[in-house]
Amino acid sequence: MNRINQKLQEKSNEKLLSIYFTAGYPNLNDTATIIQDLEKSGVGMIEIGLPFSDPLADGPTIQASSTQALKNGMTTEVLFDQLKDIRKTVNIPLVIMGYFNPILQYGVEAFCKKCREIGIDGLIIPDLPVDVFNDRYKSIFETYDIINVFLITPQTSEERVRFIDSISQGFIYMVSSASVTGSSSGFGDIQTDYFKRIAKMNLKNPQVIGFGISDHESYAQATKYAKGAIIGSAFIKNLSKNGVDNTEQFIQSILN
C-alpha cells in the first residue's frame, strides 16, 4: 500500500502535521537534513517543493524561497540526486509539490518512474487540471503507484468536490481560503463554515487543510475539522530567520 494511504488510515483519531518546504532553500544541499529533522520532530508527511520560476499560486514567501533555490542551483536532476538515499533514513510519506512545466520538460513518465525508484509517494501539481490528468496522465501515475493529490477551495461547488473525491486517492488538499499561499492570519467564520461544510460531506478521502496555517492556533483549528494540516510559508520564514537547526523547536511550537 502507498505510504500516504497507510499513514492517513492508521490510528483514525491522530492528527497529522504536514510541512512544505522549497528544496534548495536556504542552501542547495539542505534538503535531506530538513527532511530528516522534520520526521524526527514529529511531522507526519512532507511536501518537497520543486522550485519554479513562476509560481502562480504562491505568495511572496514561497516565491522568494523558490527564486533563491533556483539561484542556488536547484534543478529536477539535482533534487532527485539529493533524494536518492532518503528512504534509508526516512519513513513518513514524501510528496513532491511542483508546477507542471518542469515536470513536463523532464517527461511525466520519467518523473513518475524516478519518484517510484526513490520512494516518493505522491505529487501535488497545482496547475495540472483534473481533466487533463484524467485524459492523459492517470495511467502513468497508476503504473508507478504515484498518488496525484487534487485541491479543493471554498469556491469549489459541492458537485465538483464529490467528483474530485471520486477520483482522488490518499487525501484531498483543502485550500483554506481564496488566496495564494502565505496570507491570512487565523481563520474566521467563512473558513470554519467551509471546514464544517466539507466535514459534513463524509467524503471517502481524508482532508488535509493548507494555506494560511502558521501557528499552533491555526493548526489546532484546522485539525478540528480535518485529518491534518499543512504549513508552508511559516516554516520557510522560520528557516530564513532561525536557520536549519531550529526545525524541532518550530515543530514543537506548532504541535503543543
Binding site: D54, T76, E77, N101, P102, L104, Q105, Y106
Partner: peptide, 22 residues
Amino acid sequence: GKEGIIHGSKTLLMQTPDGQVT
C-alpha cells in the same frame, strides 16, 4: 521556445532545459 506551460496555456515558451521560464 519549446512547448510548455505558461500562464495557464500550453504553448511555445522560452525556458531552460529544466523548465524554468527564461
